[in-house]
Design a binder for these strands. Structure first.
Lengths: 225, 225
DNA sequence: GGACAAACGGTCAGAATTGACTGTAAGTGC
DNA sequence: GCACTTACAGTCAATTCTGACCGTTTGTCC
């Protein structure tokens, strides 16, 4: 009956770490569901299922909690990225349709939890200096990591192209810009008219033997921002 | 001594309109300075210099005020655009450096008041259905107007290019995506490394006699998101 | 010129939120 | 095993914000 390791011996540090995890996760959940303005310490503590004392013991101020949530969001996403590149790398096929698949995959990241959490924090950081100072170094580090992942996704065939940095930046920023419009305009992400543009961009600038896709069949019935 | 027209005859409707204007302007000011969360009816009324009764008479609820601020922001910006295209159109020079100037001008719009006001509202709209329903039609209309202005800026020489719609969309969305990073990373907008990319994109896809700018001299010392 | 209502001015109560504060149980080090 | 401290639990006062409410002035219409 003797447990081999330390059994239910609830070490204090373990429980403490659990608390932080619980609270930080709840904070990000709340941020995604209710937005920054309605992310109050009360809703967070309710969502996390912790007492007021427990929350305030770990995060004495709301601002500190939000700042910590930044770092938590960043490190979580960084871990996801590590995973993601491992999964995506073995899905390598011919170069022909690789561009399409990479772009689809790339675009799909802009509906992930991280993206919207980041947008809430970025927007709040604009008028909150402390948040901004926390966010900046984290996001810079993340930016580097994201670009490494993207490079791996495209593979050496494309990423060695002298035009590749340009294409990567355009895709990354353009996708972010398009994703922003989904705040008020909810439509199917998989049929976004910009997908055709992004594919075309990649074809035109990365495929030396460019396919016969010169003009863009862009139908703008309703103008999408 | 008889005044010719209606002198200080403060018509009621005029004063009423002034009140709305005052309050809406103050709301947007507040939104830009303090962000959505700290845009309270009290700070607005203080900034506008109006009494509580005056504010509540015109905007009985905070939500209604924010929604009205959306429309005000949109119509204001629309008027600015009309003006802008008139001013910019006569500044036509040779096609050679027109692309550069248009892109600079284009990029400069992303530091305007409208952009950051819109971002605050967009972000809030993600988790606020009423705001979203107000924002969507307004922003769609604006999107169309913005594209017309952009087309006029580029001029028929470029906008008739079959690749033009693609370039316009990439520039518009990429600039928005880059501008978002300025929420937490404040640097000089005029030296953004993406400017070189945007110019290159325009050269490569719009200039049939493409200049000798094949690869992008993109120095990414510090990775900018 | 008199009734009427819009357009306020100003106060206040109720609700929500934050963080301080007191009390307590349970690991930890010696 | 005993003192000590972390990690909570739960309450509460102070603050803040919102919108209701009541009173007053002043265009406006007939």
């Amino acid at each position: 009956m003797a447990e081999p390791a330390q059994p239910q011996r609830r070490t204090r540090s373990k429980r403490s770490a659990d608390s932080r995890q619980l609270i930080l996760d709840a904070t990000l959940d709340c941020l995604l569901e209710n937005g920054y303005a309605r992310t109050t310490t009360l809703t967070i503590q309710a969502r996390a299922g912790v007492s007021r004392g427990r929350l305030l013991h770990h995060f004495p101020s709301r601002e500190g909690l939000l700042v910590a949530a930044c770092q938590h969001l960043a490190s979580t996403h960084l871990a996801e990225l590590e995973n993601w590149v491992a999964v995506s790398l073995d899905a390598r096929g011919s170069d022909v349709d690789r561009l399409d698949r990479v772009i689809d995959l790339f675009w799909s990241t802009f509906e992930q939890r991280y993206f919207w959490g980041a947008i809430e924090l970025w927007t709040a950081a604009r008028t909150d200096e402390r948040l901004r100072n926390t966010l900046m170094p984290e996001e810079r580090r993340l930016g580097t990591a994201v670009r490494h992942v993207i490079d791996a996704l495209f593979g050496p065939t494309f990423s060695s192209n002298p035009r590749y940095p340009m294409v990567r930046e355009l895709l990354l920023t353009s996708m972010r810009g398009v994703a922003m419009t989904y705040t008020f305009d909810r439509r199917d992400r998989h049929s976004d008219p910009h997908l055709a543009i992004w594919r075309n961009l990649a074809y035109l600038l990365l495929e030396d033997a460019a396919p016969a896709v010169a003009s863009v069949p862009l139908q703008h019935e309703n103008s999408h921002n």
